[in-house]
Simulated scan of single mutants.
Amino acid sequence: MVITHRSIRIGVMGTHSTGKTLLLRRIERELFARDITVARTGQLGRRAALVPLPKMMHHTADSTRWVIATGIADEVAAAARPVGDTSVQVVLADRACWDAIGYFRAAQEWSGRTTHRTEREALHQLAAANPPYDLLLTTVLDPHLPVRRKHDYDPRYRQLVDHHTHALLREENLPHLRVTSDETSRQHAIDRAVELCLTETPV
Results as ranks from 00 to 15, higher is better:
9 R>P: 06
31 L>W: 09
195 E>C: 08
17 S>V: 12
155 P>A: 08
164 H>T: 05
37 T>S: 13
197 C>Q: 10
28 E>W: 04
202 P>N: 10
31 L>T: 04
127 A>L: 11
129 A>N: 10
148 R>Q: 13
35 D>T: 07
42 G>N: 00
201 T>F: 13
82 P>V: 13
163 H>P: 00
34 R>L: 14
62 D>E: 11
22 L>K: 11
94 D>Y: 00
83 V>F: 00
34 R>I: 12
66 W>N: 01
83 V>M: 09
36 I>A: 03
146 P>A: 04
117 R>M: 00
182 D>T: 00
135 L>C: 08
202 P>R: 14
107 A>P: 07
182 D>A: 14
194 V>I: 13
97 C>M: 02
68 I>A: 01
101 I>S: 03
57 M>T: 15
183 E>T: 14
66 W>T: 02
190 I>W: 13
39 A>Q: 11
159 Q>V: 00
171 E>R: 11
11 G>S: 03
156 R>Y: 15
179 V>Y: 08
108 Q>M: 14
189 A>V: 09
137 L>K: 04
165 T>F: 14
114 T>M: 06
183 E>D: 12
117 R>D: 09
131 P>I: 11
11 G>L: 01
176 H>P: 02
34 R>H: 08
61 A>T: 12
195 E>S: 15
129 A>S: 15
173 N>S: 12
193 A>D: 07
25 R>T: 04
179 V>C: 09
132 P>W: 11
28 E>P: 03
147 V>F: 01
118 T>V: 09
68 I>D: 08
78 A>P: 10
202 P>I: 15
51 V>C: 01
164 H>G: 00
150 K>W: 12
157 Y>L: 07
109 E>P: 00
30 E>R: 14
111 S>I: 05
184 T>S: 15
128 A>W: 07
193 A>V: 11
125 Q>W: 05
193 A>N: 12
179 V>D: 01
77 A>L: 12
76 V>L: 14
67 V>N: 12
83 V>H: 00
196 L>I: 14
161 V>E: 04
171 E>H: 14
105 R>M: 03
161 V>Q: 02
158 R>H: 07
156 R>N: 11
48 A>H: 05
152 D>P: 02
33 A>D: 10
106 A>T: 04
127 A>R: 04
85 D>W: 09
65 R>T: 05
148 R>N: 12
170 R>V: 15
124 H>C: 11
45 G>V: 05
25 R>N: 14
70 T>L: 00
36 I>D: 01
134 D>G: 09
169 L>I: 10
139 T>A: 07
32 F>L: 07
108 Q>V: 09
70 T>R: 08
180 T>K: 00
178 R>F: 06
47 R>C: 03
99 D>I: 01
190 I>C: 14
37 T>L: 12
